[in-house]
């Protein structure tokens, strides 16, 4: 079966169990063991979006003034904060599912060892993606706490941003994982860095989508854009039908990438 025919599969659960999905949590257990001694590394990626937020509040916010969202006027830092929160979930998930997965896949050969046991390729893929998602979630929780402390959350609805960030983490971890299975070596990590920057800047993060004019459709291609829209809605407590579409986009991407990634691990390591 070719990799692309996977995309047509619509029952990923039975597909994944065919690739041995039984104990993905063992991968997470392994990482908890490995990171016990270096938890600082896990936490460090959280600071980048935080520094952005601080700089927005200190300088840019004063220059830009208020922004109009869904007919309401909000201060610029309250506009940007949910987007940065979505970005931090993305960062956490991508960091882990690319560089760390590449290391474990090609150099540390962690998965070869696991696949000699009853663990299956889908256990590896789902376990790794879950771990990356958890990492993104840790950043998101920290970020939300800072937002609350800075008075940027508007109601208890803001807590809904956490499950949304888990979905964002899932999406990017699945994309990162699949992409990494195609990497030839460390030099390919440059591609990730090159893609992350425009994604971060052009996902309606710093400007409302209306300001992109005729280019709005390009923004809509970015998974982060859909995540940002969801987190913003949670923070504002404003619910519209379009949110279902945003969530579905992320969910479909995740499921397809996850099944495809499991297949790739099977192909790469069980040959």
């Amino acid at each position: 079966m070719s990799d692309t025919s996977i995309v047509l599969r619509i029952i990923p659960v039975s597909y994944l169990s065919g690739l041995g999905l039984r104990r993905p949590h063992r991968m997470i257990e392994r990482h908890v063991m490995a990171y016990r001694r270096q938890w600082l590394i896990v936490v460090s990626g959280f600071f980048e979006p935080l520094f952005y937020l601080l700089s927005m509040r200190a300088g840019v916010g004063d220059l830009v003034g208020d922004v109009s969202v869904a007919g309401r006027s909000v201060p610029y830092d309250a506009f940007v904060a949910p987007a940065l929160m979505a970005s931090s979930a993305m960062n956490g998930a991508i960091f882990d599912s690319t560089g760390n997965v590449l290391h474990r896949l090609k150099y540390a050969r962690i998965y070869d060892a696991a696949l000699a046991t009853p663990m299956g390729p889908a256990d590896v893929a789902v376990g790794e993606i879950s771990w990356a998602l958890i990492r993104g979630q840790i950043y998101a929780i920290g970020f939300l706490a800072v937002m609350a402390a800075m008075g940027l959350t508007e109601s208890w609805w803001s807590l809904m941003a956490l499950p949304v960030c888990a979905l964002i983490g899932l999406t990017f971890a699945s994309i990162g994982f699949l992409g990494t299975t195609y990497m030839r070596g460390w030099s390919d990590m440059e591609i990730v860095n090159t893609l992350m920057m425009p994604l971060f800047l052009f996902s309606a993060t710093f400007f409302p989508i209306s300001s992109y004019g005729g280019w709005a459709w390009v923004v809509q291609l970015s998974p982060l854009y859909h995540g940002v829209a969801l987190v913003r809605a949670c923070n504002a407590g404003v619910w519209t039908a379009s949110l279902v579409v945003h969530a579905l986009v992320l969910l479909v991407i995740s499921v397809v990438m996850l099944a495809w990634g499991s297949r790739r691990i099977d192909r790469l390591l069980r040959r």
């Binding site: 063991m33 490995a34 540390a108 050969r109 962690i110 070869d112 060892a113 696991a114 009853p118 663990m119």
Partner: peptide, 26 residues
């Protein structure tokens, strides 16, 4: 299985290698 090239987990200690492997076997 003892593969031709060791696939030990270099980020873990000696006994942790045994522990996690046992966990892979439930």
């Amino acid at each position: 299985v003892v593969p031709q090239l060791d696939t030990l987990d270099t980020e873990l200690s000696v006994q942790e290698n045994l522990w996690i492997y046992g966990r892979y076997f439930d």
